[in-house]
């Protein structure tokens, strides 16, 4: 297990380095930050001075190495637009995105598993078929459209829920939470449904097909022959056997939820890191963009590591094979 973890951490470092390199090479095509930073009445001398000051005159591999050097020490540079350290800005924005992502993930996993089991057990039942059909909507509609539809229905027509923002937040240390105020809780409902709906339908369809497969197995038949109750068979014997593929996909989807909160945050003007990133692109704020991408890849890597470790917890057959073999899968 230890060898496996160490190997994975080394792999993670390589992945992060490559992601950073690709990202940095692309920033040169986004635009020139100098255009935005200096007004109309700039002189050539100003441009050269600022370029040298920001280190933009260096070749991009050197810029990249300098960024990595700083990042390794926890210094992600200074935002071109806000003139503040990027680390501070991210720390300030991260709680909003993480809370939104957490609620969406819980919504997606709980909803997905419950509906998935229900539609598998009640196969061909009327309600199950209705759920399956409407889940097609969740899969096929783009996120921003769902968000706009929800805003129209619940915020504009019914005016039950706010259409944008986080509501009131309470500061706990450096973390600002919206969970402790009514307006904060109300504000998170629509964005988290919007963000998690696609993932929920995906998990639901996966759980359903896995469950149908497992319910055909001999050991389920044998469990029925032993006189166990339906509930024990469905939720203990069958569900456990569907979990390995479900964990894999769910893990990837959690990464996606955090990374692609950008669209939802834009639609709902949610003050998180996704919105920060969109604004950074418009302004060609290279340090912010680079830090954000690095952060997202760190999350993907960590989630994948957790998923691999969860396999061991769920499936005893992997444990006895030894960690070394599993590392090559």
């Amino acid at each position: 297990m230890l060898a496996f973890s160490i190997r994975r951490i080394f792999q993670a470092i390589v992945v992060l380095a490559v992601v950073g390199l690709v990202a940095f090479s692309m920033f040169r095509f986004v635009g020139d930050p100098i255009d935005n930073m200096l007004g109309q009445e700039r002189t050539d001398a100003d441009i050269v001075r600022l370029r040298t000051q920001l280190g933009l005159d260096l070749p991009f591999p050197i810029q990249y190495l300098k960024f990595l050097q700083g990042a390794a020490q926890g210094n992600f540079g200074v935002s071109y637009r806000q003139g503040r350290p990027v680390a501070d800005i991210i720390v300030e924005r991260a709680p909003a995105t993480l809370e939104l992502a957490a609620v969406s993930v819980i919504f997606a996993i709980v909803g997905g598993i419950v509906f998935g089991i229900f539609t598998a057990i009640q196969r061909d039942g009327f309600i199950a078929n209705a759920i399956m059909t409407s889940s097609l909507i969740g899969v096929s509609l783009p996120t921003f459209l769902i968000g706009i539809l929800l805003i129209y229905l619940f915020a504009v027509e019914l005016s039950w829920l706010p259409s944008f923002g986080r509501g009131e937040v309470v500061k706990i240390g450096w973390w600002s939470t919206g969970f402790l105020t009514v307006s904060g809780l109300k504000a998170i409902i629509l964005p988290s449904i919007t963000l998690g709906l696609y993932q929920m339908t995906l998990i639901m369809r996966l759980v359903r097909s896995e469950m149908l497969e497992v319910l055909r197995q001999d050991y389920i038949r044998f469990a029925f022959a032993r006189g166990l109750s339906d509930r024990s068979i469905h939720f203990k014997h069958a569900l456990k056997n569907t979990l390995v593929p479900v964990i894999t996909v769910t893990g990837l989807q959690i990464g996606a939820i955090i990374a692609f909160a950008i669209i939802t945050e834009t639609v709902f003007q949610w003050p998180g890191v996704g919105l920060l990133f969109i604004n950074a692109i418009q302004f060609v704020d290279i340090p912010v963009m680079a830090t954000y991408l690095l952060l997202v890849s760190v999350m993907f890597v960590v989630i994948n590591l957790v998923v691999d470790l969860l396999y061991y917890a769920v499936d005893p057959r992997l444990r006895s094979d030894g960690a070394v073999k599993a590392g090559h899968q």
Partner: peptide
């Protein structure tokens, strides 16, 4: 269904053909 569940395993036991697949692998 409930009555039958009480009979299965308690009054009538069953042994299946393939022992490799008759047992739940995760329990």
């Amino acid at each position: 269904k409930k009555e039958m569940q009480k009979i299965r395993g308690f009054e009538i036991g069953m042994v299946f053909q393939d022992p490799l697949t008759s047992l739940n692998p995760l329990i």
